[in-house]
Computed example of a mutant assay.
Amino acid sequence: MSYRPIISNVEEASNNEKDGLYEFIIYLADGTECRTFYNRYPEWKMTNISRLLKTPCPICRKDFICKCMENFGGVLQQQITDNEWLEKAIAK
């Protein structure tokens, strides 16, 4: 069985509107939390993703820093685009 991340919520952590840089916290359905960084110009682009160290990694089960979530950046980006999560997070 392969891991399939499903986004349950996204909230804005910080931003620099002048430069178009944003930081979001992504909450996944399995309880994992990730921090993502975005550049808004010329269009939304994920520049980095990392798992917050609140729960063990759902993929490798390490409870320390790993880079497993980077492999799912495309899947998460697609969900964010399809469900307009960034627009919802900024509007709050």
Rank of each mutant, 00 (worst) to 15 (best):
R51G: 00
P56R: 09
K88Q: 10
L76T: 04
Y38G: 02
Y38V: 07
L86Q: 10
I6S: 15
G31H: 05
G74F: 12
T36R: 09
I65K: 12
N71M: 10
Y41P: 00
R35A: 15
L52H: 01
N71F: 14
G31Q: 08
I65D: 07
C68R: 08
Y3E: 03
A13R: 14
V10R: 06
K62T: 02
C66K: 04
E84Y: 02
I6Y: 11
Y38T: 02
D19F: 09
N9Y: 12
G74T: 09
E84Q: 08
Q78D: 12
I90P: 01
L53T: 03
P5I: 01
S50C: 10
A89T: 11
I25W: 06
I90N: 05
A13D: 14
T32K: 08
F37R: 15
E12M: 13
R4A: 08
R35I: 14
K92Q: 10
L52S: 03
K54G: 07
N71G: 12
R61F: 01
A89H: 04
R61C: 04
S8K: 15
F37G: 12
T47M: 14
Y3T: 07
I25A: 05
N83V: 03
T47S: 10
K45R: 12
A29N: 12
K92S: 12
I65W: 07
N48E: 15
N48I: 02
N16I: 13
G73E: 04
I49F: 03
N48Q: 13
G74I: 06
E70G: 05
R4I: 09
M46A: 05
